[in-house]
Design a protein around this nucleic acid. Structure first.
Length: 827
DNA sequence: GGTGTTTTGGTTTTT
DNA sequence: CCAAAACACC
């Protein structure tokens, strides 16, 4: 191995010091763009190649799957050819937690087959608990309670500990609810996100020898984005390093943006106090941005105190000034961004090089609209996750409750989807009966209604209701005596579940299981019936789910996940259903879909502008960046204006946004913005005013000729927000921005091919992926894709509209006749 | 128990 | 302004 000569040469002295640090705690303070990931990946490679550490003795933790995936690829690259990279554990905190927890489920007091609840599931469960307890706390309280529970878990508090910390009546009531909630979770054989960390903590607290075992297995622990760890994660790291203290943490306190999720900057600020022997390396050379951009970022962040002192520098002196633009309203702001990108592309620019960042997901819509009008391809990262969509959640809920009969949240979700006459009243009766010993779960309760119907998978064989008093007997009776429609509905539902379980036993692959389920419940018809307008989209989403499953089953990386589920399976288990091959795959797939946002690392085909929230942008970089919505209340968005910590975090967020830009940065805002449908006048963001005006130019088309356009108004109102630099007034005469230049309407765009397309460097086919020809005769010869059959060419058409039947020649499976709506036109 | 209509209230940010 | 919940009626 010639690493010393080769790889280390590419590192600067500081990076090299971090990479070659021998052992023990190491704090790497890595400024934005200073080669943080580079250091981590090289350090992993160094440990293996030079220190003789075995790959499987290393664990690296990240916060996002995207980061984990990228690190994995780069480690593989460094260690190429030897397949050693694959043996390094590179994982998000939560995925790692899930793995450990499943592995030791019995010791953690869990069913090994537990479900993972996302926050919607979590909310449903809390609501149910409040309802059942007759707790009058309002619906609005559900969210507060949810974040209370999360906050406890982020601190590493069990319900008992939460109770100890409760000092008033309300806090005690909250802690009580937390305890009930936790009981209900365990009862349902489920964990929530917080449990993926807290569960492991409890396990390690109660079984220190187990923690030691893991610590010995992983001789080196590396953590990315350490500034975003919360106390629970910090404790987890403590357990994992108990045997050696070989802990490398990399982070930047200026980029701490997850305080609201329980992260505490104290972890990184106090790392050296907590680890006396900790070495520290500062990476201050930025390789990403021009000095103009870097200094602007510094102007903003410098107003925060309590920072690790550091000063980023770059060799890229100068650079283009930052362009500021103020739109008359939010729509105009979006139009400006779209037009600017359009112009760049016309001059040979690349859509992949451009990103738009905003504070909240909701802002994305306007940009989407405008980009579409200008015919600019885009991809949105984040937003509503694929797996959060109703149709996807429905189908997964079926699979979940087939696999885990105790999963009441999943059962309740689909017991009446599609409608089968099991309404609110029936569900309430069933839910009430779950409190009877021996009934335990919703599925246990619905068996009561089905006289002597044997449960074929032995899941309930041993369970009989054991009412111990009159009340309980009544509850059982109320279910047994259900009649007519509800009973039939329950029967139908049970038949569907059993048939699905049968399929899990008899198919090895998941795809047919889901396909048969969809057919069995006539799901597409259900979609059509409930909302025919959205049915097409939803049907396509279901198609995407099928292909996601198929992809998952074919992806060699899934094997490890499936294997880890199999390893977690207790030896003495004799349950046929959960141990069937398809069930193991399903468990693995469900885990992954709970933990991985579909948009993670999902690079759509072709060139596209990337849009996301600033939170989503951390760790990424783009040659051209637009930061939008720079207005007080939007960004910074201060829920509690008196909370200086909140402002400090918004400031760090601005710092993150600015430092994503390599060459060109645009900062935009709008004079008025629609909030809940009503226009509201805005003030320019203080962050914009913090930047030294010499680094900025105002676009001549801007509706405001100076940055601090609201200064007079603010003075009148006597509500200043800090001191402001003198505004910069550009010398150019500013022409009014003519928005009539923009294509007027959607219709106009959807139909013809405007001649301005020809001036683009890209061919329209390459980037026009959203438009589909509407005339049917146009379809012959067109390339289409089908979620199952792949890509093919249309050779025949009969009928018209969405219901047209197309004969398609698929290289993979030959000619098939498929309904139009199952196909996606590629061009 | 289902279906159509009115009312309300909600926006940070995500594993 | 738009989605979800509450309400009213079949």
């Amino acid at each position: 191995m010639t690493m010393t000569q080769d790889w280390l040469q590419h590192l600067n002295p500081d990076q090299r010091q971090a990479v070659t640090h021998p052992a023990g705690p190491l704090l790497v303070l890595a400024g934005a763009g200073s080669g943080k990931t580079r250091v981590l990946t090289h350090r992993i490679a160094y440990l293996i190649a030079e220190q003789g550490v075995a790959p499987h003795q290393i664990v690296a933790m990240t916060f996002t799957n995207k980061a984990a995936q990228e690190m994995r690829e780069r480690v593989d690259q460094l260690l190429d050819g030897q397949g050693q990279g694959g043996q390094v554990t590179i994982s998000t905190f939560h995925s790692l937690g899930a793995r450990i927890l499943r592995r030791h489920a019995p010791a953690a007091g869990l069913d090994w087959n537990f479900s993972i609840y996302d926050d919607a599931d979590q909310r449903r469960l809390i609501t149910r608990i409040l309802d059942e307890a007759g707790d009058e706390r309002a619906r609005a309280d559900v969210r507060r309670l949810q974040s209370y529970i999360d906050a406890c878990k982020n601190r590493g508090w069990t319900p008992t500990q939460a109770h100890e910390h409760a000092h008033d009546a309300r806090a005690e009531a909250d802690a009580e609810l937390y305890a009930n909630y936790q009981r209900a979770l365990t009862h349902a054989g489920a964990v929530d996100f917080g449990d993926l960390i807290l569960g492991v903590l409890v396990l390690f607290r109660e079984h220190p020898e187990l923690a030691k075992q893991y610590s010995k297995r992983w001789q080196h622990v590396l953590v990315d984005e350490f500034q975003d760890t919360n106390p629970a994660q910090y404790e987890l790291l403590d357990h994992l390093t108990v045997a050696h203290n070989n802990l490398t943490v990399v982070g930047d306190d200026d980029q701490a943006i997850y305080r609201w999720r329980g992260a505490t900057v104290a972890n990184i600020l106090g790392f050296e106090d907590a680890n006396e022997k900790a070495a520290r390396v500062k990476l201050e050379q930025n390789y990403r941005s021009t000095s103009v951009i870097l200094e602007a970022a510094n102007d903003v962040i410098a107003r925060n105190d309590r920072r690790h002192a550091k000063k980023l520098w770059t060799e890229r002196q100068g650079g283009e000034p930052i362009v500021a633009f103020t739109g008359a309203d939010d729509r105009e702001e979006a139009a400006y961004v779209a037009e600017t990108i359009f112009d760049m592309a016309r001059q040979g620019g690349n859509f992949d090089d451009v990103a738009i960042f905003y504070r909240t997901n909701a802002q994305g819509r306007l940009f989407e609209e405008q980009l579409r009008q200008w015919g600019i391809p885009y991809r949105i990262i984040g937003g509503l996750s694929f797996y959060a969509r109703e149709e996807i959640k429905d189908l997964l809920a079926y699979l979940r409750c087939a696999l885990n009969p105790r999963d009441d949240v999943a059962t309740a979700r689909v017991i009446n989807t599609p409608r089968r006459g099991v309404g609110k009243t029936t569900l309430e009766k069933l839910a009430a009966a779950t409190s009877v010993p021996g009934v335990e779960s919703l599925q246990g309760a619905l068996l009561l209604a089905l006289e002597d119907r044997p449960a074929q998978n032995d899941l309930f064989a041993a369970r009989r209701p054991r009412p111990s008093n009159a009340t309980e007997r009544l509850l059982v009776e109320s279910v047994e005596e259900l009649s007519g429609v509800s009973r039939r509905g329950i029967e139908d539902f049970w038949t569907i579940l059993e048939a699905t379980r049968d399929d899990l036993l008899h198919y090895d692959e998941l795809t047919p299981v889901l396909e048969r389920l969809i057919e069995r419940i006539a799901y597409f018809e259900h979609l059509e019936r409930t909302d025919s307008e959205s049915a097409e989209d939803r049907t396509r989403n279901v198609g995407e789910l099928l292909s996601a499953i198929e992809e998952f089953e074919q992806d060699p990386n899934s094997d490890a996940l499936i294997a880890s589920v199999q390893e977690a399976m207790p030896d003495d288990i004799d349950d046929l259903l959960t141990t069937a091959p398809a069930s193991l795959r399903l468990r693995a797939f469900l885990d992954r879909s709970a933990l991985v946002q579909s948009t993670d690392g999902d690079d759509g085909p072709g060139q596209a502008v990337t849009m996301m929230t600033i939170h989503g942008s951390k760790g990424l970089e783009f040659p051209t960046v637009f930061v939008a919505g720079l207005e007080e209340e939007t960004f910074p968005s201060l829920r509690d204006p008196g909370d200086s910590e909140e402002l400090a975090e918004e400031r760090r967020l601005a710092y993150v946004a600015i430092t994503r830009a390599e060459d060109r940065l645009y900062m935009t805002n709008a004079r008025r913005r629609r909030v809940y449908g009503q226009f509201k006048d805005t003030e320019p963001s203080r962050f914009l005013l913090d930047i030294d005006p010499s680094r900025l130019i105002i676009d001549p088309r801007s509706a405001a000729k100076e940055l601090d356009y609201a200064r007079d108004r603010r003075k009148r109102l006597g509500a200043p927000h800090g001191e402001f630099p003198e505004p910069h007034i550009p010398s150019q005469g500013a022409a009014a921005y003519d928005f009539n230049q923009a294509p007027a309407s959607d219709e106009h765009l959807a139909q013809d091919t405007p001649d301005w397309e020809s001036s683009f460097s890209q061919t329209p086919q390459e980037w026009d992926v959203t438009h589909t020809p509407s005339g049917d005769d146009q379809l012959i010869g067109v390339t289409v894709s089908h979620t199952r059959f792949g890509i093919g060419e249309v050779v025949g058409v009969s009928g018209s509209g969405d219901k047209a039947r197309l004969t398609v020649d698929f290289p993979a499976v030959g000619q098939q006749t498929v309904i139009r709506k199952f196909l996606k036109v590629l061009g």
